[in-house]
Design a protein around this nucleic acid. Sequence first.
DNA 1: ATACTATACGGAGGGTGCCTCCGGTTAGCA
DNA 2: TGCTAACCGGAGGCACCCTCCGTATAGTAT
Lengths: 215, 215
Amino acid sequence: MAGFENFPVTSEKDSREAEEEAPEPRDAEGRPMRADARRNYERLVMAARRVFTDEGTGASMEAVARDAGVGIGTLYRHFPKRIDLVEAVYRNDVEELVTAAEKAVANSGPLEAVDEFLQAFVRYAEAKRTLLSELREAFDKDPELKSRSRARIDQALDLVLSRAQRAGVVRGDVDSSEVVSMIAPVCTSSVLTAEQSARLVGLVFDGLRTPAPPR
Amino acid sequence: MAGFENFPVTSEKDSREAEEEAPEPRDAEGRPMRADARRNYERLVMAARRVFTDEGTGASMEAVARDAGVGIGTLYRHFPKRIDLVEAVYRNDVEELVTAAEKAVANSGPLEAVDEFLQAFVRYAEAKRTLLSELREAFDKDPELKSRSRARIDQALDLVLSRAQRAGVVRGDVDSSEVVSMIAPVCTSSVLTAEQSARLVGLVFDGLRTPAPPR
DNA sequence: ATACTATACGGAGGGTGCCTCCGGTTAGCA
DNA sequence: TGCTAACCGGAGGCACCCTCCGTATAGTAT
């Protein structure tokens, strides 16, 4: 429906059903994408992210195509409807959040990793703000998009959170889903500025720490 | 800028500067509006509320004009830009919230009035959800719109809240602005359904009661 | 290396929506 | 009842979303 279903950006370690290591991007029919098609697909998602963050909802498809250096027809070949492009950008942002969690686990201490991930989440939500209404529409059209993305974000946070809990630096009576339930509305609220959201999430971080942080 | 500045719906008892009791609606230059103009203005706001709630952001100006039974030119005479119409609907909703508070104070007991107002607030916020991004734009264009509306809502809640506090049925260590700060993000959050928002506001209401409500 | 074919590319153009302009009509007043 | 200022309404300009189809190219077999 939305052009290409799952553009593999993440490197899933999920061994539940190791059907195939698929580093090769494939199109809807399962055939590998042609090199030029893949190049343009990636360019378009990147351009869309730039243009949407710069111009908000008012950004035009033509502007995205121009920024990507491709024709308007190419854009619509990959993303039949405007909402499909919004969805692709969103999926990309979610995957970046996941890799941010993986990087934090790999490169930072248990507590720092939590802080880094929460900051990444604030940035992620900030970008989401401008297209909030269009995302809502995408969620209405495809409810699974919302639940799957939410599950993926919960997993990502769990990666850093449970590690911090095992290390004893974060209180053990919260799970990642609860934390996301708390910070997601704060970060996407339309009545708060980005700074206020960031501050509130900082308070949540302090609340997670154990023992109590120095005042 | 936005057609007609302050369409008098409320009956302000503010005696700071009683320049004139103005039940007569006036246009930008201070002259009274012609009867047909006033009729169409009101029809347009009502029609816009209907159409926006039904069709969301995708609603067209033509649809509003049709629903109001006026020509497209008339719509643009009153509301030069689409955002001006959104703003008018929003102002109208805020004023209805204020009158809801006044009615609750007049017709219900101290505690029931608080509950009624909170429920009215949930409905108000629910209607606001669909045009959230456009409202954000309106706030950016005219920051005073946001602060004035917020102040007016705070006042409205204070009407019912302080009465309940004087009656001893609501804890005294909260003020209306705090309560609005708490429920506004909850009600406009894009990650919660309307039912979840209503439930959470119900919890806030329980938390306000003193002594603790029966479980 | 070359030829073939499936696939991708890109721009012209249709349809819709926001907004403007101006001639016809009507409310308010003497 | 007549005058004038103000209002009404629809045709049309401009921008944007999206479609269609002829052209160019990647991938493959010889």
